[in-house]
Amino acid sequence: MSVLLAQQLVCEKSDRQLFSDINIELSSGQLLYVTGENGAGKTSLLRILVGLSAPATGKVHINGFDIHKDMPSASQGLLYFGHKQGISQLLSALENLQFWCQQHDVKATEEAINGVLAELGLTGLEDIAVKNLSAGQQRRVALAKLWLQQDASLWVLDEPFTALDVHLIAELEAKITLFLKSGGTVVMTSHQKLSIDYPISNLHLDYSW
């Protein structure tokens, strides 16, 4: 069974067609790399794939569930990382991740979370409100979700490398490769050239306005 199945997606923004007739079928262990100019609809496509935006027509199934009809079931094995990081500014890194784990049925002890934060170079910053961290550090707190998740089968990552230093980009790429090798599926966009040692399928969105 395919992990992600998108059929004949059409996206409209302000009554203009952004893209049409997008068909995607990904199975376990595949990496889809979405490219295109600014404004070609990369983010819109990703948001449609995870069910945050509705397509004008077309259907998206994740693990066999229709994401636009049965979001709680379909998003079970889904991890989405978007432009907005999904962490509260007033909570600390630790609190944010604990909260996220409770929301998404991820079993992680405080030590486990602290371990991941240490791995991402955030030792000593666990208890500081996120608003007091730098942009790159905030980004890392949000990315820690990728390290914490346990049973996700699909990652949808929108520009995950923004505001990261070279060292961390390499680490994230290694993490993505590891996830793919263990049978995960990834859809991602990025401005950087991907240097992942793994077969990449490419989807190019043309600017059609």
């Binding site: 069910g51 709680p72 998003s75 079970q76 989405y80």
Partner: peptide
């Protein structure tokens, strides 16, 4: 604003 709402929508609990 911070995207927590997106994460709520993508969580197993109905919105």
């Amino acid at each position: 604003a911070d995207g927590s709402l997106e994460q709520y929508m993508l969580s197993p609990t109905p919105l």
